[in-house]
Amino acid sequence: MNLSDQKKDNFAKQFSAGLVLFVMLMMIGVFLFQYAPMIAFFWLSGLGFGYILQRSRFCFVAAFRDPALTGSTAVTRGVLVALALTTIGFTAVKYFYHLTSQTIPGQSYIASIGMNTVVGGIIFGIGMVIAGGCASGMLMRIGEGFEIHLITLVGFFLGTMLGNNHLQWWNSHWMWVKEGVFLPDLFGWAGALIIQLLVIALLYGLAIKWEAKQEL
């Protein structure tokens, strides 16, 4: 058997294993659906999330790290596209709920702003670069077979435990805007949408310029 045949053989093996896994995952999905459709939704959306991340090599760490480290902004621009599209989609959904006087969904994600946001961001940024994966990337790479990210996961869990215990202290000493800031409250729905999309477009333009500058 030559090398190319071996490769083909490996493909057949993994592909077959993939098909078996697919059937198993769907069976679990059906089981969960019978238990409660919402639970099946979480299951399937997780599978879809992992599948998309792996197939498109979408990596939030690379998006933040690569511009300074390698000069590439390809992933950064991908993330900016995702931010723009999600903003449009979310705003449409939220505005619909607002118009029909229902509770706007997902407003708990309008987080408070304080020194904890600043320090948390910096610490998380350092951590994800030296670990080579953020929360989603780590889970995705565990699925790809990286044993090292099991250790990252243990560290993540221990760090969370420590942070949970300091949360009270951060919140009582370093909070600036407790209720958070929902941009449409400041600029109106259309204004906030336009401003946010302009900022994303500006960053996109900067990313293109930055990469072009590296190639010179």
């Binding site: 320090v119 948390g120 610490i123 951590g127 243990v154 221990l158 760090g159 300091h166």
Partner: peptide, 12 residues
């Protein structure tokens, strides 16, 4: 790296 991410995400 995991520890830093865990701490950062839980306070932010």
């Amino acid at each position: 790296g995991g520890l830093l991410m865990g701490y950062g995400s839980s306070i932010a």
